[in-house]
Nucleic acid binder design. Structure first.
Lengths: 221, 221
DNA sequence: ATAAAAGTTCGGGTAAACCCCCAAAAAAAT
DNA sequence: ATTTTTTTGGGGGTTTACCCGAACTTTTAT
């Protein structure tokens, strides 16, 4: 007797082994699921997809080495048939919107139950999108705040350029302007220019504010 | 045919449903394990133990409502026969030492595999202690640093005086030295002196470092 | 009780951060 | 192909942060 339903090939990508094992145990019990691989960091996901047939990647947003967001971008670009279901500890608007903008088909939290997980996978495998209720709520809130346009706290985050992010990270590491200039092989004046842009974009009065805002928005690491 | 080995009654306490489900899937496959309950917050663990026979609690260190550390304290005090195996995302010396001081018998990370999880449970059920290799390493490092008494990273936090904390909070709010002086009714020079002490105590090079360290140690708010 | 240590209070001087002006080449977006 | 943003950087100045030292007070240890 053959199953009409095709098998869904799943790659689990999460740096917490126990979590991967647990997830696999759940999925194994389903007849139409096949866990075709496990990855514990970003680069190995990319590597795995080159040589294997995968329908869905269960992707942790916060992966070591190469963040889930970058991995997702890579997948969308080079493996358009592979669907990404983002899984995260954090119900943060910034995470959700960023990975969705990079092609993820769904986003669920690690505190969602077994039934919802299975439903999410089947929905995404079917070509539709899936979001946990909590996540949907968060996105709605984010949109609300965006409308208000009032710069209160973490409404929506101004886009920082590559250089600005680099400088910001080095500022957060307590380097002086001259040290940053040396390490990036640019002039002291250029670094000051970038900091000035950061102060203006992030609405901060000084470097302390930059770092506080950056940390509050998980911009470092 | 009866099993000579007694059943090990297990309570899983973690606020991430998916994690609990996964763990349960793993444990179900073992003949000598019985998952007698699941808790998604601290208080319900305490409540459950009043009415049920539990041998081991798999306890997440970071629980909502009532932290895993408090829960562990409560268990040790009122249910001395119940063994606690702490499970955490974080390999932080402060977490490890604190929950061990409150009676936990073991500590493993969420990135440990299935086999090690089973081994840890059986070891603790047998009355012995169990720690992941990574955790052991962290504790050793912590002890080392304690001996050296040199404040390097977040080994243990130097005690800050009342004034220092006040100044630190105002620095983090992006106030200038003069503004802080005015708000505390002291001289600019005094504020600078306090900042200097902070830099020395927290081993920072500038105010950015102070704020980063303060935030990492949840010193603000 | 008395010595030692740590905390609070400041001044003077220097290096660094921050500000305003500006502007050209390079890259990205439309 | 044209506009916008980013990256680069200079000149020149003000403000702020940071360093060294030092008195006086409070807390801690012996």
């Amino acid at each position: 007797m053959f199953n009409i339903e095709p098998m869904i090939n799943i790659l689990i990508a999460d740096d917490h082994t126990m979590f991967v094992d647990g997830m696999e145990s759940i999925l194994k019990a389903e007849a139409d699921f096949f866990v075709t691989g496990r990855s514990y960091d970003g680069p190995s996901v990319v590597e795995f997809l080159k040589n294997n047939n995968v329908d869905i990647v269960l992707l942790d947003v916060n992966l070591p080495g190469m963040s889930g967001i970058e991995v997702c971008k890579e997948i969308t670009a080079n493996h358009p048939t592979v669907k990404v279901l983002a899984i995260s500890m954090f119900n943060e608007e910034s995470f959700v919107s960023e990975i969705l903008n990079n092609g993820a088909k769904g986003y669920i939290l690690k505190n969602t139950g077994r039934e919802e997980l299975l439903k999410a996978i089947r929905t995404v495998a079917n070509g539709e999108s899936y979001f946990s209720n909590e996540v949907t709520e968060t996105i709605m809130k984010g949109l609300m705040n965006q409308r208000k346009a009032s710069a209160k706290s973490s409404a929506f985050f101004p886009k920082l350029s590559r250089r600005e992010k680099e400088v910001l990270k080095l500022i957060a590491q307590e380097f002086t302007t001259q040290e940053i200039a040396d390490s990036l092989f640019i002039s002291l004046k250029t670094v000051e220019s970038h900091r000035s842009s950061l102060l203006s974009k992030l609405n901060a009065r000084n470097s302390v504010g930059l770092v506080r805002i950056a940390m509050e928005n998980h911009l470092l690491e």
